[in-house]
């Protein structure tokens, strides 16, 4: 068991570093122009958003349709913070400012997640969905009317601190944290609530506390994602964080498989890159995008990976052994 774990860590670390080196070379040699780097950065941000939403939608199994609201809070809070910090003239390196801004964005969003979650998590299913939509709309309308952050005209003059290199590693760290959460005692407790709330309570799991924890953590990471977004775009406008954006994130999570983090990652990549690749089809691209969603839901309603995770070690082993049966639980549907 322990040996396998070590091996898995090693393999995954190598994969992460190799992937980074590939991008590094591509960017340094200008094979990847700014347009593609931009897509890569947005993809990383969407991966963070999808994985964080998966904590609530997948692990806890609740419908949360207001994720863009938490992202907006994180974006605006971190942007205001970094602007104030840079104005104060403290000679801090950009990376430090970015990290502090992410923490601020995450914490402010997390606090709001806690405040919203505590009273509303008594609701379930569609009811919770409607409440979260309402909440994120309130956030959006607040920022439209809030003068100090630019109102409807948007917040300008945010220093651009995000580049591909730092956003890549932040994404890796967050992915690691959320994976670890899923396998921890706390993560299991959250998953058991999805499986059966009464049985969880009877096993001694304080269900309300864990629901609020899951909700706040999801909001925290959404806030971090928002901070990255703000410091990449260097301009924020409230209309970006509308209902459709929340739905887009929810679609990514469902398509990847509720509860599957690797599914969220793959599906975030596909659904961010696909619309960009389809740009040459102009007005047909949204049609194709929607068709992909429909076909996917008809033929694979449980999402790409269902509830299971894609495991690189298991995949490599199955390649080595060239087994005919590729659908083992760990490496299922990998090819």
């Amino acid at each position: 068991m322990d040996h396998n774990k070590k091996k898995a860590y090693l393999v995954n670390t190598i994969a992460v570093v190799v992937l980074y080196l590939v991008f590094f070379v591509l960017i340094q040699t200008k094979t990847m122009n700014n347009y593609f780097v931009g897509i890569a950065i947005m993809t990383c941000i969407m991966i963070i958003m999808a994985m964080s939403l998966n904590i609530v939608a997948g692990f806890l199994g609740e419908m949360a349709l207001g994720h863009a609201g938490f992202m907006a809070i994180g974006a605006y809070a971190s942007a205001s913070f970094s602007m104030a910090l840079i104005d104060s003239g403290l000679p801090l390196p950009h990376l430090v400012i970015l990290i502090l801004a992410m923490i601020v964005g995450g914490i402010v969003a997390g606090v709001f997640g806690f405040l919203i979650g505590t009273p509303t998590l008594r609701l379930r299913g569609d009811y919770l969905g409607i409440v979260t939509i309402g909440f994120s709309e309130i956030i959006r309308i607040f920022f439209i009317n809030f003068g100090p952050t630019g109102g409807a005209a948007g917040l300008k003059g945010i220093t651009r601190l995000v580049n591909f290199h730092n956003v890549y590693w932040v994404t890796i760290v967050i992915a690691f944290l959320i994976f670890t959460l899923g396998r921890s005692k706390q993560g299991r407790a959250i998953i058991s609530i999805r499986e059966d709330e009464i049985a969880s309570e009877a096993a001694g799991i304080p269900t309300t506390r864990y629901k609020v924890l899951a909700f706040s953590l999801a909001a925290f990471f959404a806030g971090v994602g928002g901070a990255l977004y703000a410091h990449y775009q260097s301009f924020l406008e409230p209309s970006k964080f509308g209902f459709m954006f929340s739905i887009e994130m929810f679609v990514i999570v469902v398509l990847g498989g509720l509860g599957s983090l690797t599914g969220s990652i793959i599906s975030a990549i596909v659904l961010t890159v696909l619309p960009e690749m389809l740009r040459s089809f102009a007005e047909y691209r949204l049609l194709v995008y929607s068709l992909v969603l429909i076909i996917m839901m008809i033929f694979r309603p449980q999402g790409i990976f269902g509830r299971s995770e894609f495991s690189l070690t298991a995949f490599i082993e199955s390649l080595i052994q060239r087994k005919n049966i590729k659908n083992s639980i760990g490496g299922g549907e990998a090819s």
Binding site: K185, S192, A199
Partner: peptide, 19 residues
């Protein structure tokens, strides 16, 4: 019964020992 249907037998027993 209300077991945790999508967890393994081992994980179910582990959840029992949560406290």
């Amino acid at each position: 019964r209300r077991i945790f249907a999508e967890m393994t037998v081992f994980e179910n027993l582990q959840m029992g020992a949560y406290i």
